[in-house]
């Protein structure tokens, strides 16, 4: 009896052991999640309803209800504007980055000479993605533009002439030109922020099975059709992944975060800072929720 029992158990021992170890290995992460993620999140929400004073690291809380929120949204000089501009900028930036990174990934996926070099070049922005370097680079590139020289001569710059021609000569609405100009002037920013997204899309493109392309070719599809009917649907789940990543990445780099930080550590207004954080978090989650809901409808899942 005992012998048979042992025999029956043995095949599953591998899985049982794996399950056990799986849980054990999860422990550090679980502790981290509770201590550094869930508890702080709850504490921030609690803080946002309290007036906080710090005294040598000891926290004194006084419940004040919603007044922190009311102050932050109604009375605070710049928070309201800042949050609207932040989120209004995040949307077009995200769309641009997604399009650019998909485009770049397609460009890097083809077979041609110097592809390796091109890939290295396109992934360089991942290495250089830092705000501090931007500061010095911005000044450098402004020097290099030579705009001052052109205006000093008295004429318009080449760009201004083209714009003038498009508005007056061709008769395009100036709003449209303005949007286009914004896109163009943001080109460096867009390229710089889309390194990881390109990487993800490229990985996706590599995983499209070659037999799909073979079928498309047999059926007489053109390159254009193949892209829309084969390539795009297969990478479309990654658009969702990239969307979430891009939005969070974009929001990590805004002035709003500096504001939250200075409100807390510069002005010692911990309650206000917590309320700002909660509002910011709420807006972030709403934006991501709406974006994924919209894009999720278009996404095609193979399985």
């Amino acid at each position: 009896m005992e012998n048979t029992k042992k025999k029956r158990k043995k095949p599953s021992s591998f899985y049982r052991r794996q399950d056990m170890w799986g849980v054990i290995m999860l422990i550090p992460w679980l502790i981290g999640t509770v201590l550094f993620f869930l508890m702080p999140l709850i504490r921030v929400i609690i803080f946002s309803f309290n007036e906080i004073t710090l005294d040598l690291g000891a926290i004194h809380q006084k419940f004040v209800g919603l007044s922190n929120y009311i102050f932050v949204i109604r009375t605070h000089a710049t928070f309201y504007q800042e949050i609207i501009t932040t989120f209004a900028q995040a949307v077009p930036n995200t769309i641009l980055i997604i399009f650019f990174s998909l485009f770049a990934a397609v460009l890097l996926n083809g077979k041609y000479k110097f592809r390796g070099a091109a890939r290295v070049l396109f992934f360089l922005p991942i290495v250089l993605a830092t705000d501090l370097i931007d500061v010095s680079l911005a000044t450098v590139s402004l020097e290099g533009m030579g705009n001052d020289a052109a205006t000093a001569v008295g004429g318009m710059t080449g760009a201004a002439m083209v714009v003038n021609f498009l508005i007056e000569g061709v008769g395009l609405p100036s709003e449209m030109i303005k949007i286009a100009l914004d896109v163009i002037s943001n080109v460096f920013e867009t390229i710089k922020l889309s390194g990881v997204q390109t990487l993800i899309f490229l990985a996706g493109l590599q995983s499209v099975s070659p037999s799909m392309y073979e079928v498309a070719k047999m059926e007489g599809a053109t390159t254009y059709e193949t892209f829309w009917k084969v390539t795009l649907p297969t990478v479309s789940p990654l658009i969702l992944t990239n969307l979430v990543y891009t939005i969070t990445d974009n929001l990590m780099r805004t002035d709003l975060i500096d504001m939250i930080q200075t409100t807390a550590f510069g002005q010692a207004q911990y309650g206000y800072s917590a309320a700002m954080s909660v509002v910011f978090l709420g807006c972030t989650l709403v934006l991501i929720g709406v974006a994924t809901a919209i894009v999720g409808k278009v996404v095609f899942y193979n399985d």
Binding site: L41, Q261, S277, T284
Partner: peptide, 12 residues
């Protein structure tokens, strides 16, 4: 944890 900006939990 990917979605929530870490700066939100700065103070705690």
């Amino acid at each position: 944890t990917i979605v929530v900006p870490p700066s939100v939990m700065m103070l705690p």
